[in-house]
Amino acid sequence: MNRNYSQDLVVRPRRTRTDAWTRRLVAENRLSVDDLIWPVFLQEENGSSEVASMPGVKRYGPDCLVDAIGEAIDLDIPAIALFPYNNPATKTPDCREAYNPDNLICSATRAIRKHYKDVALIGDVALDPYNSDGHDGLLRNGIILNDETVEILCKQALAQVEAGCDYVGPSDMMDGRIGAIRDTLDEAGHTYAKIMSYTAKYASAFYGPFRDAVGAKGALKGDKKTYQMDPANSEEALRLVELDMQQGADMVMVKPGLAYLDIIQRIKSTFGVPTMAYQVSGEYAMIKAASANGWLDHDAVMMETLMAFKRAGTDAVLTYFALDAARILK
């Protein structure tokens, strides 16, 4: 018997895909400018300099930083994360520049605040840009010192908040630092300063261009596997989220992003806490390189990856694509 299969179909999922307005009506996830955090690199010298391994990314000096921030604000990007590129002379084994109230992050924060009040500023709390050894913690006899590092991180976080940062982002992965930073800020009267904890930061090979951008790559002695997470682990990430939230974290970060979408999804579905993702330098550089060679459509792939973060459960994405994506979304 001949049968017209198409006439027997009652349920046709393609009906809701046939036109743009219906696809918009039934979209399960949405990406907006409100989902973007723009990372900005700072330098001491006036002018700007290109980061060779991150096409399109610059370090900004004091004379052009405020204008760059203004562009992001004009695009309605709600938050800026600040990262310093320190001159080698400021890098020492004791990392004292990290809590200097006139260091790059603190100085930049005060300069931005003179012009802009309604943008969130996030200070990076870690020692690698200040450490002559290139590590996120103090190094002695080949060992990263946890508790001694936490003492410096607390001073660093306090200096950033007192300069005007709304958030501190501890990205160091030392044990106990969230509780210690929370206590330090509260005792100083900064009860409403927020902590964006890099809770699940993996010992990843995707960080290379970032280390170029902050000048930490050449100084690094060894690797960071004794404090950053093993890429093989996911249950551990859940334990760390629980610990950080108990200690006073307001939101958690997963870093890197694309290779760890499963971690994002598990954290969000398990705890329902504000969950951020960092689309790291290596992820950015791969897309830039492939698009420069004509292998990928830059804007289409950029937006698809950002939507992947939203689909996995992120509340916001820290991405070097923030300006490009905001222009499209606007």
Rank of each mutant, 00 (worst) to 15 (best):
Y207L: 09
D230G: 10
L329F: 03
L31F: 03
F210Y: 11
S197R: 03
S6Q: 14
S48D: 05
I263Q: 10
Y85R: 12
T149Q: 13
A292V: 10
L104P: 05
V280E: 13
S53D: 15
H115G: 14
E151S: 02
M1H: 07
Y284A: 05
I122K: 05
N233M: 01
G282C: 10
K117V: 02
D35K: 08
D230E: 09
V26T: 11
E151Y: 01
D297S: 10
D183S: 04
E235R: 14
H135S: 00
K58G: 06
A326V: 07
I69V: 15
L42S: 12
G176W: 02
A249T: 04
Y278T: 11
H115C: 15
A108H: 06
A20H: 15
E187H: 01
V161Q: 04
K225W: 08
S6T: 12
D133Y: 12
A322R: 01
G313D: 11
L153P: 14
D212F: 00
V11H: 15
E242S: 05
G56L: 11
L139C: 01
K225I: 06
L82D: 07
A322M: 00
A20N: 15
R266M: 12
S6G: 12
L31A: 12
E45P: 02
Y198R: 10
M251Q: 12
L258H: 08
T275E: 13
L121T: 01
V280L: 08
R113C: 08
C106R: 02
L306H: 05
Y278I: 06
Y278H: 03
A205D: 15
Q228N: 08
E187G: 10
D118E: 10
A277I: 00
P170N: 04
S49G: 08
A216F: 00
I181C: 03
C165A: 12
V51W: 06
L82H: 03
N86W: 05
G282D: 12
R182S: 04
R182A: 01
A200M: 05
Y167V: 13
S49Q: 10
D63P: 04
L306S: 03
Q279P: 10
I328L: 06
D19Q: 04
P88S: 00
D299I: 00
L240W: 13
K288P: 09
C95H: 00
G257A: 12
V150E: 11
Q265W: 08
A300T: 11
A312Y: 09
L138G: 13
S49T: 09
L82G: 03
N293E: 14
L185D: 13
M303C: 07
I264H: 09
V273T: 01
E97T: 00
A213G: 13
G134E: 08
D166M: 02
R12H: 11
W21N: 14
I80R: 09
Q156G: 02
A111R: 09
F271V: 00
A81K: 04
S269Q: 15
E28Y: 05
A20W: 13
R110C: 02
A322F: 06
D315C: 04
A200V: 12
D147F: 02
T270V: 07
Y192S: 15
L82K: 05
A290N: 07
E283C: 10
V317L: 08
H298N: 12
G123T: 01
G47K: 02
P256R: 15
F321M: 12
A277M: 13
R15M: 12
